[in-house]
Design a protein around this nucleic acid. Sequence first.
DNA 1: CTAGTAATCAACTAATCTATTGAATAGTTA
DNA 2: TAACTATTCAATAGATTAGTTGATTACTAG
Lengths: 221, 221
Amino acid sequence: MDFKHDLFAQFARVGKALSNGNRLELLEFLAQGERSVEQLSTVAGLTVANTSQHLQQLRHAGMVTSRKEGLKVYYSISGDDIITLLNALRAVAERHVTDVQHLVNTYLTVKDSLEPIPRAELLERARAGLVTVLDVRPAEEYASGHVIGAVNVPLKNLEKWIKKLDKNQEIVAYCRGPHCVLAFDAVARLREKGIKARRMQDGYPEWKTAGLPVEVSQSGT
Amino acid sequence: MDFKHDLFAQFARVGKALSNGNRLELLEFLAQGERSVEQLSTVAGLTVANTSQHLQQLRHAGMVTSRKEGLKVYYSISGDDIITLLNALRAVAERHVTDVQHLVNTYLTVKDSLEPIPRAELLERARAGLVTVLDVRPAEEYASGHVIGAVNVPLKNLEKWIKKLDKNQEIVAYCRGPHCVLAFDAVARLREKGIKARRMQDGYPEWKTAGLPVEVSQSGT
DNA sequence: CTAGTAATCAACTAATCTATTGAATAGTTA
DNA sequence: TAACTATTCAATAGATTAGTTGATTACTAG
């Protein structure tokens, strides 16, 4: 039964693509949308050459596609099934790898008070004008796609923004995904100032994948 | 942002567990239920020591648990989320790794005529007595759990069984999972004899995970 | 045509992973 | 207690992988 052996070896190619932390980080970032090699290298903190090599491995595993435009090469996730796979991986890691639980609990602070608000609920409440949706990712990421009606305030501009905010307005913050720390940070800071703030469940990629309404624009801070 | 780095490194531990074909094979087999190290080693065609080591890696990644009973150690999948993860991995590999498509097409023959029958549909038709459900896995695997009402005929007994079969009875065969070749084989042979036969969608682990009715018994061929 | 930029390639070292071997451990049976 | 079995452990050689460096390619702009 050599067929069986070959088949599992092929499945393992996809597994191998997931076996490196840097590649997972690149994938998570790509899950938000198309990115150039340079962008990816700075976010992940890798050299350009190294990033390029990782991206090629991901491409060979069929997980990303690339497109050349002028000097730049843009990579993107090759399908929604990749996001499903990443979520399944995350779920397993969270449930079973005790170190992950430890990390999440240690760094992401006061867990219970930061319970995320489900996507469906948020959409309703935002439509009713009950909450302001806050996108704390950098401006470029916001521009390339965000939750409908969301306001973009990158973390470094948060303090300034808080000042001119109606203290009674409830805020729901989101960023790149369930483990992106930006939204946690923002919520913590807003709460310090006495503002009612919560995190959105997961992040932009999941919102988009769930088929909920998004916008693409250039509007900044 | 060292937290981010650590977190992805932890996720990669799960990815690493999936990065080897032999481990994936062990997992697929474990998805059917509890197995001893020896059983696993023979199915995967590995030495006992090597199997033991792979299993320990899977345990460190939190994907399997073990239980000692007398001389034997029994391993099992640590949760349904592992099956979800395996399915997501398979889906990605099938969709994006062209070699997998090639292998499946080459070995699993006459693709279109072997379209699988969905689980829900099968359950209905089996209940109505319209089809006979055929479990072509070895007797021990059948004994440790099978689709309700299924008849166990290991592949080697198939020819004998065909002889005493009503040619008008429709057969639906299943085995270990979507890529288990046993069911393909059985369907091909049944069709040769002019019997209406199809494969069930996926295999026993998926049936069980879907919450559909199962039986545990000793009844054999 | 030249200079400059984004990405890839090629070569290399250090680190990690795989499978094998033989010994050690834990539990059973006589 | 001694012999036996199932599993694990420890050491090892060979293969694979990760990241660095410097050169090369493909393209743009002057």
